[in-house]
């Protein structure tokens, strides 16, 4: 690949990852709100403590899952998530 083409390709990738990070962060925050609403509905205010515990475990994990999804042209999701699962398991 010529140098200029490679540069162009790299920039495109970085732009896609940045977009994925920004949209992923927004999605993760909304997911956190959804989870907390669910806990409040299920068990009232005291249950919110458990909700916070779950939301703060879910948010980083979900962001990493979003970042693990491969691009459209090579959608073999299973090997990507297979590596992510033990890492998350080890941490939590």
């Amino acid at each position: 690949m010529r140098k200029s083409l490679k540069k162009k390709h790299d920039r495109k990738l970085i732009r896609a990852w940045t977009l994925r990070l920004i949209l992923g962060t927004a999605f993760v925050y909304i997911a956190g709100i959804g989870m907390l609403s669910l806990f409040r509905r299920m068990g009232g205010e005291p249950f919110l403590n458990v909700g916070f515990l779950c939301a703060f475990a879910l948010m980083p994990a979900l962001l990493l899952v979003i970042f693990s999804i491969p691009p459209r042209r090579k959608r073999n999701i299973v090997p990507s998530l297979a590596l992510l699962a033990p890492c998350l398991g080890w941490l939590f």
Partner: peptide, 16 residues
């Protein structure tokens, strides 16, 4: 703090 959790897990994946 959430960024740290993300950085920790992504770091583990890189060096797994």
């Amino acid at each position: 703090a959430i960024g740290l959790l993300v950085a920790v897990v992504s770091g583990i994946i890189i060096h797994f």
